[in-house]
Design a protein around this nucleic acid. Structure first.
Lengths: 219, 219
DNA sequence: CGTGAGTTTGACGCTGTTCAATACTTGTGG
DNA sequence: CCACAAGTATTGAACAGCGTCAAACTCACG
């Protein structure tokens, strides 16, 4: 967690980029280096974002240094939209990221004027809720093995090749997402490889050698 | 978990009751006995509810019998509103409950016609999200003692007398909410009493003898 | 009283944490 | 091209917290 800001966020207004939805005018395009903060807990929540490329983590820090990652966001996903005026979590780039920023200001009036905007906002909120609820189930009553299996299945589903994919995040990120320690995550990866469920060419590369076995672990 | 349906849900249209919001015409008023199901996972999600009195639990059952309680809902709270056509969780009455049912049908068109409805729906979704996220933090990286302390603090805050309140739910419910076993919950209650943080006149009655100590446990 | 649901308590074991050491990976400069 | 450093990952051993199993207790209700 000793990450340093390599270069700050560049805010660039891109011309000719089509707004991907009715959420607002074309927002500024932002580039963020790995490990850098996008916003911090308590920051003014005037902006929210859509991921163009890269992976973002949404997390919270406890007073004693423990960290809980609430979610990861990949290409096409929206994050950082709040009901209140301040961000409730911290957002950081996991990998090199390109984002589009949207202004929350006037969002309510825009939603009132355009039904499709209201619908999109509501759909986004309900989708975020469903994800949080799924995550909650994983954290609540599952073993380390089941937690890691569900994590890998999730990323396998999202990958173009469902049997081979690259993890953007470190073991520490995975541990903080699943409510485990880095050692347990590492040991569980090793166990899955011994059981011939996955192979790990490099720590970030995962190949599912037995996808069915992985799904069976999701009790 | 050997609960039986004492008497079925009575659907009664009450005349003269004012709709508490623009969510729809006055819905049917429903009475549910403790332990009875309101809807099951997979049921058609045509209705959602507002609690008039009593406490409801929203939960999911795993194949091996484990249960995770996603949330409790008390007076004035809305639950059961889904984005999709089927309920993603099961809802059951913890105590004797009175509910108002709302039809989801045409909700989108009503939201389009009345901005305040759209606003209320979005606010509800964001509030549910915030609660799920808070719960997630508790489940992720906290000891049994911290989990129970945050649970008690939550109910103390909601109670009229913040220092004395009645728990509607059993130890098993608390365990399934916090991702613990009933034995650990019970032992932790006893420990808190030994530490003079709370006193437990009866298992369901909690008195906070040292509220500050309780808050200090919420790392 | 007797019964049953809910709760508490005890003894023991396993899963995951903690602490510590080692290996791997990547980038930097000689 | 190699040596070195820093970040990241793996592995081991000892420990602790929580789960499991089992029994006893409490209280409401018949």
């Amino acid at each position: 967690m000793s990450m340093q800001q390599v270069y700050g966020a560049e805010h660039v207004y891109l011309e000719g980029v089509q707004p991907p939805s009715g959420l607002g005018a074309v927002g500024p395009v932002v580039h963020i280096a790995p490990g850098c903060e996008i916003y911090a807990e308590g920051d003014d929540a005037d902006l929210f974002y859509k991921v163009v490329s890269g992976v973002v983590r949404i997390c919270k820090f406890l007073s004693d240094g423990r960290r809980q990652i609430e979610s990861f966001h990949a290409e096409g996903e929206i994050f950082g939209l709040e009901a209140a005026d301040a961000h409730r979590f911290t957002a950081e780039a996991v990998s090199d990221c390109t984002l589009i920023a949207y202004r929350r200001r006037n969002l309510a009036s825009r939603a009132a004027a355009d039904e499709s905007v209201a619908r999109e906002l509501f759909a986004h909120a309900m989708d975020s809720l469903a994800r949080a609820q799924d995550h909650l189930l994983v954290l609540g009553r599952r073993s380390a093995m089941e937690k890691l299996a569900s994590f890998l299945a999730e990323w396998a589903d999202a990958a173009p090749d469902h049997r081979r994919f690259t993890l953007a995040m470190t073991r520490q990120d995975i541990a903080d997402y699943l409510g485990l320690t880095i050692e347990t995550v590492s040991r569980t990866f090793t166990q899955l490889e011994k059981d011939a469920v996955i192979s790990i060419p490099t720590p970030r590369e995962i190949r599912l050698t037995d996808p069915a076995a992985l799904r069976r672990l999701n009790a």
